[in-house]
Write a protein that binds this DNA or RNA. Structure first.
Lengths: 391, 391
DNA sequence: TTAGTTTGTACAGTGGCTAAACAAAGTTAA
DNA sequence: TTAACTTTGTTTAGCCACTGTACAAACTAA
């Protein structure tokens, strides 16, 4: 049943409050923490002492006096440990190393075009080794690995279905765990990781309800509600790409008709491209962007149309969730310049007036790093939770 | 900032766990509660003693022995207080009186067709008086009032916009509070109340993620995620009726095109009815149902179509949320017989296979009482929370 | 120098929890 | 019938994290 309350729970809650306060204010004294949180000065002192002993917090010296004894300033010790975040894309692996504050130390990218899972996983493990070796010496070392995958992932870290990788039932967590038996490893959908990345380090820093829409070959969404990832009953929420926006529309490979991703994804621009008279365009998103930069009108109009359809789905999401923020991420952000205007116009036209007032729609501010950063934060979060739990 | 942990919080949490356990098992001994919850026997004893002193729980006598001393069975004292739940509909007020377990003691309905807010509110207050007078003598008496309204409601209980009532900015809570100055009063959207009603007393009793779709003149949704109502950032979530399901569809009064409620609501059936050759049909939902009962094919086909479009939106919601359960409520449930089949067929076709496995779609099991019961539960919930809080 | 302010620690007291002991009340079987 | 065992619910001692208060240390300002 539910966890019962006892003194350890109280301490855990309060330690976490103290920690969050230090993180939020960056540099703060014990006295201020006590004031802000409402915790007794003595309580704060004793909790901070433990955090210092764990090397999670350190004293940076005296701060400015406001007419009395100078405060001793505290800071989170971001470099006491490091984590690895991996964005396993359709044709690339992006592996990054960050400290506990999300500062990126190094990154490494590999092309995986045409490889199958038996080739990809060893390569992925190799990238972990490469960035690990770049980690500065620290008290805790590497404390966790997060991996974002373009497909459905169950709670055990098994990739159930990743159509664009051609994977079904690949137990990715276990496969990596073999190489790092003691390491906490977190595998989740790429859109969920992206949503967390934006919430923690991107545009959604001070926001409670955020929908991250990952627009690549298909469309997926990471849903953050009340500051928490919402995964759905079985972990399959956010399949917004298969939301019907045209009841009698084109047939989708999912069996449904008029799915959003048929009209507003990388796939959609390719489909449009085929029917446009091309001059030297090869069919990749990048090639269409080049054409648009060169001023080819038919391509620019195609992007405009994509933006319109993107806006229809975004407006639906706003009407359903009433979020603070909708963030468009993943590959299609490359075409922001040609998509943004028509998308925003359509959202303005289609979302209810009362929703528009509060909801903001924007493109990812972390560009191509949302997923990797989110994945790394999963590991950070688990590490801090474990650290502040019962001693 | 966040609430800090202290011994009172621990007690509150554990009291609430004990209370929930008693409610769930209906009749249970202290020893079993201790076993189930993991709380120490002494802790359970002392918490139960307080609940008994507050008359929230009582001992019903000895239970069956399992080879030792007979246990003393405990039960929740549902009749220690009563609450009022009100479903303010477009042309009716349904006011019910329930005990703290949701058992309905009496109900009262009034027709409000053609009345404005200055006439409706006094009438609503009068219905409160009528059902109040039916309340049996109890220790706490009437402990709260909940009201469900067909429109957007802010956190202060002001009805911001209720198009079908013709209300804008009516401070309903304050208006009722005048008559009952000390009474806790909760005003919320009718779909939110319905969702809570189904979660507590209806089909969604053992479910974490439930979407209640209220299909009346328009469509609204109450969203329960992780056992909690999700209201959105400003409280305007669930405006699913204005989700686009046909990108180039008909114009809606909201300014958008192809809104779901144009195709799958009471309004939709009326619109269809106009273009059907009628024999004696007057244009109300009831009249169409009568025609369908009489076997008029064009009407039956119209309902079938409504079911199809209802299914499209439901499939979208399933793909987005991955819920345990979707419940269709409000007026259109009257036509369940003619709508259900085509709706279920469409959902089966349109929701992703993996979602279908877990999600169930059904019509309300509380029929027309979901909203009133949900409203009454809001009051029960607040009362119990207050009672188990710090003494 | 002195008075006042601010910071952080020390210490007693509170209260809710746990573990263990125990009394009461039952069953089971020789 | 009696003895041994089980189960229930209360009591008691001890633990631990919190709070409030007192206080020393360190600083500002007049």
């Amino acid at each position: 049943m539910r966890r019962t309350g006892d003194q350890f729970m109280v301490k855990e809650i309060n330690t976490s409050i103290v920690m969050d306060t230090i993180l939020r204010y960056h540099s703060i004294s014990r006295a201020r923490i006590s004031e802000i949180t409402g915790l007794n000065k003595g309580t704060v002192s004793s909790l901070v002492l433990e955090l210092i002993n764990q090397q999670l917090v350190f004293e940076t010296g005296a701060g400015e006096s406001s007419g009395g004894r100078k405060p001793v300033m505290l800071q989170f010790n971001g470099d006491t440990g490091y984590v690895i975040g991996i964005d396993l894309g359709v044709n690339y692996i992006l592996t990054i190393l960050t400290n506990l504050q999300g500062d990126m130390i190094c990154e490494h990218q590999e092309d995986i075009t045409g490889l199958n899972s038996h080739e990809i996983i060893p390569l992925l493990v190799r990238t972990i080794g490469i960035v690990s070796s770049q980690a500065p010496l620290s008290h805790y070392g590497i404390v966790g690995i997060g991996i974002g995958v373009p497909g459905m992932v169950d709670s055990e870290g098994t990739v159930l279905f990743a159509p664009n990788l051609g994977w079904t039932h690949v137990d990715l967590r276990a496969a990596v765990q073999v190489y790092y038996p003691e390491m906490p490893i977190f595998v989740d959908n790429e859109a969920n990781m992206g949503a967390i990345g934006e919430l923690q380090y991107g545009a959604g820093k001070k926001v409670a309800n955020l929908i991250y829409i990952s627009v690549g070959i298909g469309i997926g969404a990471g849903i953050i509600l009340k500051n928490e990832l919402f995964r759905g009953t079985a972990g399959y929420s956010g399949e917004t790409g298969h939301m019907t926006i045209d009841a009698d529309g084109r047939l989708c490979r999912c069996g449904n008709r008029g799915c959003w991703e048929l009209y507003a994804s990388e796939q959609a621009i390719s489909d449009m491209g085929k029917s446009i008279k091309l001059n030297g365009v090869t069919g990749t998103l990048e090639s269409y962007i080049t054409s648009a930069q060169e001023g080819q009108v038919s391509i620019i109009e195609a992007f405009d149309k994509i933006g319109h359809y993107l806006g229809i789905g975004v407006a639906n999401i706003i009407n359903i969730f009433n979020p603070d923020l909708v963030i468009i991420g993943n590959r299609l952000t490359l075409a922001e310049r040609w998509i943004s205007q028509s998308m925003q116009d359509t959202v303005k036209k289609r979302a209810l007036p009362i929703q528009r007032q509060s909801a903001i729609v924007q493109f990812s501010s972390l560009s191509s790093h949302s997923t990797a950063l989110g994945a790394s934060f999963m590991a950070v979060s688990a590490f801090l939770q474990k650290s502040t739990a019962r001693t």
